[in-house]
Amino acid sequence: MDNQFDPNNKIIQLLLRGMGMEDSGKPEEASLLFIKAWSEATDDFERFIAAYFVARHQKNSSDKLKWFETSLRFALKLNDEAVKSAFPSLYLNIAKCYEELSNPDKAKENYELSHSYKVTPSDQGPFFHGTKADLQVGDLLTAKEESNYNSELKMNHIYFTALVSGAGLAAALAKGDRRERVYLVEPTGEFESDPNVTDKKFPGNLTRSYRSQEPLKIVGEVTDWLQQTPEELRLWREKLASNKGEIID
């Protein structure tokens, strides 16, 4: 596996199942799935993300600290833009553990490290936007337009991603019966990590999802990306319908 977030990866699937158990009020079953994900992880990315979830289910601060530091160790080895977005969350959790263990110096050091990584994204792209709209190279996508998913909702930002599969999913979920389109886009101004996904389930912004109030310029179109199965799309549509106020892409 490369370091790109892939919802079809078997370790990510185990973690998603574990989160489902958490949501159903079954923490013991969730913990077992997270341990299984850790035991079956085969590369540094999988070990980083699995250790993070194992850490969250530890009963005492010493064990939590051990697992969060394990997650951080693998994250640091990756030197990956998306994984770096998890550093604020990782260092923050480590700081809280040291605080609970009455080590204020180490707590302060890790709180400062957490804060130091909370910067404007430095992702260089390329970036993609998924929709069912027919657009041309040179067109500008702007905020204040209606949502791709809810015609009653006006968007204050325009959303995009650095993962073509994420843009493909957004295109598949967008309303309308035109064909799905994934456009290559360039931000014309500042952008930020999408708060709808950042630190919500997974640490940081592993899906490399962003938003901007400045226009996106269409610079090309992508015609090949990983398509979701009908069953996967059904599950995503259910999730979209139940997440009031959350936006995908």
Score class of each variant (00 low, 15 high):
Met21Thr: 00
Ser85Met: 06
Leu141His: 02
Ser242Cys: 10
Arg73Ser: 12
Leu113Phe: 13
Lys201Asn: 12
Pro203Tyr: 02
Lys108Gln: 14
Phe160Ser: 01
Asn103Gly: 13
Phe48His: 09
Ala82Gln: 11
Glu232Ser: 10
Asp194Glu: 08
Ser116Thr: 11
Val222Ser: 14
Pro88Cys: 13
Asp80Glu: 15
Lys36Cys: 05
Gln58Met: 02
Ser212Glu: 06
Ser151Tyr: 03
Leu14Ala: 09
Ser61Pro: 08
Ala133Met: 07
Leu78Asp: 11
Ala171Cys: 08
Leu78Ala: 10
Lys10Ala: 13
Asn103Met: 14
Asp199Ala: 00
Arg181Pro: 07
Pro203Arg: 02
Val219Trp: 05
Gly125Lys: 05
Leu163Trp: 03
Ala107Phe: 10
Ser85Gln: 07
Phe45Cys: 04
Leu113Pro: 06
Asp177Gln: 12
His115Met: 14
Gly204Trp: 05
Thr188Trp: 10
Ala30Glu: 00
Lys106Leu: 15
Leu101Lys: 02
Asn79Ser: 05
Arg73Gln: 07
Lys200Ile: 15
Phe45Val: 07
Glu109Val: 10
Ser151Asn: 07
Ala50Val: 01
Trp225Ile: 11
Gly20Ser: 02
Leu113Gln: 14
Gly18Asp: 00
Arg17Ser: 02
Asn93Phe: 04
Glu180Phe: 08
Glu69Ala: 15
Asp123His: 09
Thr198Met: 15
Gln228Leu: 11
Ile218Asn: 04
Met1Ala: 09
Gly20Lys: 01
Asn9Phe: 06
Leu78Gln: 08
Cys97Trp: 01
Lys96Met: 12
Asn205His: 02
Phe87Met: 12
Leu226Lys: 13
Arg181His: 14
Ser71His: 05
Asp199Arg: 00
Pro104Tyr: 11
Glu46Ser: 12
Arg237Glu: 15
Glu112Arg: 10
Gln228Asn: 12
Ala174Arg: 03
Pro88Tyr: 10
Asp134Lys: 11
Leu235Asn: 09
Leu32Met: 04
Thr229Ile: 08
Lys108Glu: 15
Ser116Ala: 14
Ser71Asp: 02
Gln228Ala: 12
Thr229Phe: 06
Pro203Trp: 01
Ser165Ile: 03
Leu226Tyr: 06
Ala41Val: 13
Ala107Tyr: 07
Phe202Ser: 04
His57Leu: 01
Glu232Val: 14
Ser61Asn: 11
Leu240Thr: 07
His57Val: 02
Ser209Asn: 06
Ser71Phe: 01
Leu90Cys: 05
Gln124Ser: 10
Asp194Tyr: 12
Lys84Val: 11
Gly176Phe: 11
Asp134Phe: 09
Gly220Gln: 13
Phe202Asp: 02
Asn156Asp: 04
Ser209Lys: 05
Trp67Ala: 05
His129Val: 09
Leu235Ile: 08
Phe68Thr: 00
Asp6Phe: 11
Arg17Ala: 01
Asp6His: 13
Leu78Gly: 10
His157Pro: 08
Arg211Lys: 14
Gln58Glu: 03
Glu46His: 06
Val182Tyr: 04
Glu40Lys: 09
Ala133Ile: 05
Ser147Asp: 08
